[in-house]
Design a protein around this nucleic acid. Sequence first.
DNA 1: ATGAAAGCGCTAACAC
DNA 2: GTGTTAGCGCTTTCAT
Lengths: 321, 321
Amino acid sequence: MKTVSRVLNAEPHVREELRAKVLKAAKDLSYRPKTSARSLAGAKSFVVAHLFSKLSPYLVMAQLGALGACRAAGYHLLVETIDLEAGDPSAELASLLLGLGVDGVLLLPPVCDDERVLDALDGAGAAYVRISPARDLPRSPFVEVEDETAARSMTQHLIGLGHRCIGFVTGPDGHAASGRRLSGFRGAVQAAGLVLEEELIQPGDFTFHSGQAAAQTLLGARQPPTAIFASNDEMAQGVIAKAHELGLRLPDALSVAGFDDTPYAAMAWPPLTTMRQPIAEMAAAATEMIIAGAGRSPRPQIPARRFECELVVRGSTAPPQ
Amino acid sequence: MKTVSRVLNAEPHVREELRAKVLKAAKDLSYRPKTSARSLAGAKSFVVAHLFSKLSPYLVMAQLGALGACRAAGYHLLVETIDLEAGDPSAELASLLLGLGVDGVLLLPPVCDDERVLDALDGAGAAYVRISPARDLPRSPFVEVEDETAARSMTQHLIGLGHRCIGFVTGPDGHAASGRRLSGFRGAVQAAGLVLEEELIQPGDFTFHSGQAAAQTLLGARQPPTAIFASNDEMAQGVIAKAHELGLRLPDALSVAGFDDTPYAAMAWPPLTTMRQPIAEMAAAATEMIIAGAGRSPRPQIPARRFECELVVRGSTAPPQ
DNA sequence: ATGAAAGCGCTAACAC
DNA sequence: GTGTTAGCGCTTTCAT
């Protein structure tokens, strides 16, 4: 019995001949080890959980990446929501962690920066990997993306098109990406020797509505920008909608750029120029980190991984008219 | 020990006093039963799987609904993809079903109409509930929506606005909703005494691209329609994009209507008039059906449930100019 | 390199 | 109404 276990878990110390025999028998019987028995007896549960508060296209792409990594390793992906607004998120977490004993939890913003969630996870001794965390970097393995460089590239693209007055819509405070994308924008504008009036930078929170509101303000100014760079695609969509509402012809009267390259960016009109963030790969990498550490104690130290973005030029950006 | 088990599973035959005592002790110790032990010993796994081939906004909304139902019942939701294009989907399913022994599988189109998937599921003795299945209705419990009635309402909305020449973009063959929505459209057009030229009905497959292509054909005709009703929101977005590309002013030069009311419908420009399909509730209902039958043998007969849609009028429909 | 024994934490079946 | 016993199907530990 133990020999079969060794073969099926790819453990050493089994003669090649015997291994083949076991494998053949397993195949003939179409035998599948029962996950519940494996996790009851052993240290691994073969389940990774993706914990989120709200599902955006960005998180959906991450989920798909995580799913792929799970599949490749014979793992399963569990999805769980948590209400950050509600009283105590740790109570909700308890049933997840203590009950199921998942091997690890995948966290993205904003959940990955909620102190209470992190404390609850640490308290339960649960492993977790974060994507683009804003704080306490040493607290867990994580994966991040070159936000600042990417934002700089996008800004340079707009400047290269001839724009001299560019508006920017920020992400919410507390999101690591928000500050970095703004820095990248600022850096590129200043490097080009352009004046950056502070009213060209409008606050947003990654929602469509906030993109509309920011556009309203920017386009209503005495000297409106000829291009607007929104920190994510959904806000860029809001900018586009507002511009249409104001009767502007895009992209001639206004260039609009986004960030993330969600599937809906290409469905906007005009199709949105944006920075492609390899979120599926990032989530897959994070999931692999979880799986690599599953059942191991002490948990292995895993170095952070950093990914790059790619400029995707579509029809929403053009030289100013 | 058995008494504790009874209390925690809300089984009868426990004195109220003792029950309270157990509950208090459980709380004091913050005790959580271990899912793997429960499913190894018992007949239930406390896990429902959502099996899909591709993730659309529609499926994401369903996932959220299923998640809510799982949460409420102390269940967990597992997500799994299956490649319908690939050789044999049953091989992929095997590891999911035999290994994890989920209590049930939630299936939506197009997966819910794939004969091979259904056969594999039946072969493994797995329970499944389908949403809007197109065939073999008695084969499993299912949930459906009033597609035909809803399509009729939408068409009446357009006719009521004064449109006399309305184009229609169908869904893919094999999707139960495709035929029903087309029937609803046909019924309303004929009831209004309008002539329905067959070239006003263009084939689509629920993708953005197919919506664009259909719009290209419809708007290029000698007598183009003044309104286009697409069978889902994504195709409606494609119609809108194509209309913008052709320089049409929406909604005056062309009214566009969709179906589903995904979150992106409201982000289009103009905001899309559509039929809201209560997909999250439908998925929740389907998940409850799975949970109700979990661990029971023979599986209880569960009557189908039917839901209604709601017309959501936004800015993309208006009287013809 | 292989295998025997013990037991993970519950529920099922059966006493009482 | 309550408690006892015997496993569920694996992995772990420890012999050999």
